[in-house]
Structures are given as C-alpha cells and as structure tokens.
Amino acid sequence: MATVGQWVQGARVRTLPNSVAPVLVGAGAAAALDAFVWWQSLLALVVALALQVGVNYANDYSDGIRGTDERRVGPLRLVGSGVATPVSVRAAAFGCFGVAAVAGLVLVAATGRWWLLAVGAGCVLAAWYYTGGRRPYGYAGWGEAAVFLFFGPVAVLGTLYVQSGRISWAGMAGAVATGAFSAAVLVANNLRDMPTDRVAGKITLAVRLGERRTRILYCALVAVPFAISLAAAPGNPWLLAALLAVLPVLPAARRVAGGATGPELIPVLRDTALAMLLWAVTTAPALAFG
C-alpha cells in the first residue's frame, strides 16, 4: 500500500503550475473585459487541477504497465516502483477526471454555455490517450503539441470565454505564452528521459528531434512569453512586470543549453514551472487593471 506521501509524489505537485497559470491568465483577460466572476474562475481552476492530477496518475498507470518507467529518473512512479497497484492508480486517475467533470458541469450549467461540455470531454480523452490506449499519441511525438493546445488555448480561452462569452486579443496572446511555457516543461522532461524512452520504444518529440534540436526547441519556447510581454508593453506597460519570470528561467535555460542530462535536468522542470507561474501571476493583474 502506498503511503499518503507517495500518492502526493505520484500526483507530481510540481507540475500544477501548468494548470494554475492558464486559469490566472484567462481570469485576467476576463477582468480586462469587465467580465471577471470569481466563483467561475475558481470552478475553472478546480477543473484544471483535477485534470492535471488525473493525467499524472493516468501517465503513471499507462507507462507503468508498459514498463516504460522501470529505469526512469525523477519523481516516484507509483506503478513502476511497485508501491501501488495499477488498478488503484487507474482508479485515482478516473476519480480525478470525475471531479473535473462535475466541476465543469456545474460551471457550464451555471453559465449556459453547454457546447463547452464537448471541450471538457475532449480534455478527458486527451488526458487518457496521451499514454493510454493501444496507440498513445505521447508515444508518437505529439505530446508537446497537445500540451501547448490544452494548457494554452483551451485552458486560457476556456476560462475567458465561460465568463465573458467572447475571445480577446489579450486572451489569445496569453494562451500562446502559457502554452509555450507548458510545452517547454514537457520538452525538458522528455529531454531528461530521452535515453530510457528510446530503449522503451516511447518515441517522444525529443527522441525524434535528437538532443541538440530538443535543446534549441526548449530555449525557443521559453523565449516566447517574454517576446509577447515586450510586444504588448507599449499598450500596457504593466505587462513588463512579467519579465521578472526571467529570473527562474535563465538558470534553467543555461542548464539545457549547457548540455545537462538526466537528474541534472530535474531543476529545469521546477524552474520552468516556477517561471510560468510567476509570468501568470504578474500578467493577470496587469491585464485586469492595466
């Protein structure tokens, strides 16, 4: 039986900025349109967090039963390490998806935007089939594209639209920025796991691109949010506050560009997620009050 602490490790709490950041940016974009509703933003956050933890458990389950996690570095794998049964981890994933579904249903029912149920169903399916099913797209190099889509446009614009009923240029720019940050986290993760993924037959984008081009891709992705902040600053100088996120991302970029491998890349995931959260925390109020 896994302990509570091991279940928490398996949930990969350090990945949660991927869920929090886009909701913050979407809420800020809604406030810029005078459409912010705190409880709707809170429900959107519950949906995002539940989906994030659910996909983390789902990946643990699917990678574990395939044997992909047998030689992994990084956080504890519940199934791969044998501390939890595959059935229990799968149940935890489905339980999280259930929480997300209930929160999403309440949000949609309260706002009357029923077509968003289809978006929510797509999110759950994408979360499961990332590493689940017979042909998981995460094993074919499409993980980063999916992460960009669901943690960028879907999360940011979904949070914005459910409150305002419209999409703004600020929301779209924020969606691209958070999507780039989230994809960069996965790029760093897959760069770290490239040797074991290749052996296990998990053909991630990093495996397809090779080490050098994967490192270039990471640096390009983390540069995108700052380019967006600078481009938008003439119309709203408060957005320059987001440049503070350079502080945690610079050491991460140096590690990646400097050739760090294996466990040396673990801090890169942490620092990239921290930079994403800091970017969102500074950008959201700038959008709301700028």
Rank of each mutant, 00 (worst) to 15 (best):
Ala93Ile: 14
Ser19Arg: 02
Gly165Ile: 05
Ala220Ile: 09
Cys96Gly: 08
Ala220Lys: 03
Leu221Thr: 11
Gly112Lys: 04
Val156Pro: 01
Gly64Thr: 07
Gly10Met: 03
Val4Asp: 00
Thr196Glu: 15
Arg113Leu: 14
Ala288Gly: 12
Gly152Leu: 11
Val246Glu: 14
Leu78Asn: 05
Leu160Met: 04
Val147Phe: 00
Leu265Trp: 01
Leu160Gly: 01
Gln9Phe: 11
Pro86His: 06
Ser182Gln: 06
Phe94Thr: 11
Thr3Met: 10
Leu209Asn: 10
Ala242Glu: 07
Tyr139Gln: 07
Ser229Asp: 03
Gly235Ala: 14
Pro251Met: 08
Gly259Leu: 12
Ala245Cys: 15
Val23Arg: 06
Val185Asp: 13
Gly133Ala: 11
Leu217Ala: 10
Val249Phe: 08
Leu217Gly: 13
Ser62Ala: 15
Val108Phe: 09
Ala184Cys: 10
Tyr61Pro: 00
Tyr137Asn: 12
Trp169Asp: 00
Ala275Arg: 08
Asn56His: 05
Arg77Ala: 10
Thr283Lys: 02
Leu265Ser: 11
Gly112His: 00
Ala177Pro: 06
Ala173Met: 10
Val37Gly: 03
Gly122Asn: 07
Leu209Ser: 12
Ala220Ser: 14
Gly235Glu: 04
Leu16Trp: 10
Leu125Pro: 07
Val249Arg: 03
Leu125His: 07
Gly262Ala: 15
Asp197Cys: 01
Pro136Phe: 04
Met1Gln: 08
Leu277Phe: 15
Gly152Lys: 08
Tyr139Thr: 11
Trp39His: 14
Val83Gln: 09
Trp169Leu: 14
Trp142Asn: 01
Gly122Tyr: 06
Arg134Leu: 13
Ala177Thr: 10
Gly132Ala: 08
Val89Lys: 01
Gly64Ser: 07
Asp63Ile: 01
Asp69His: 13
Ala50Ser: 14
Asn236Lys: 11
Thr282Met: 15
Trp7Glu: 04
Gly26Arg: 12
Ala177Gly: 04
Ala233Tyr: 08
Glu211Tyr: 09
Gly82Glu: 05
Gly74Phe: 07
Val79His: 08
Val89Met: 10
Arg12Thr: 05
Ala220Gly: 14
Gly98Ser: 05
Thr214Ile: 05
Pro234Thr: 05
Val99Gly: 04
Ile228Arg: 05
Gly143Met: 05
Ala31Ser: 12
Val83Glu: 05
Leu43Cys: 09
Ile228His: 01
Phe151Tyr: 10
Pro225Leu: 06
Tyr218Cys: 09
Phe36Leu: 15
Leu107His: 06
Gly201Glu: 06
Arg192Glu: 09
Arg212Cys: 01
Ile216Glu: 13
Thr131Gln: 09
Pro285Glu: 14
Ala109Cys: 04
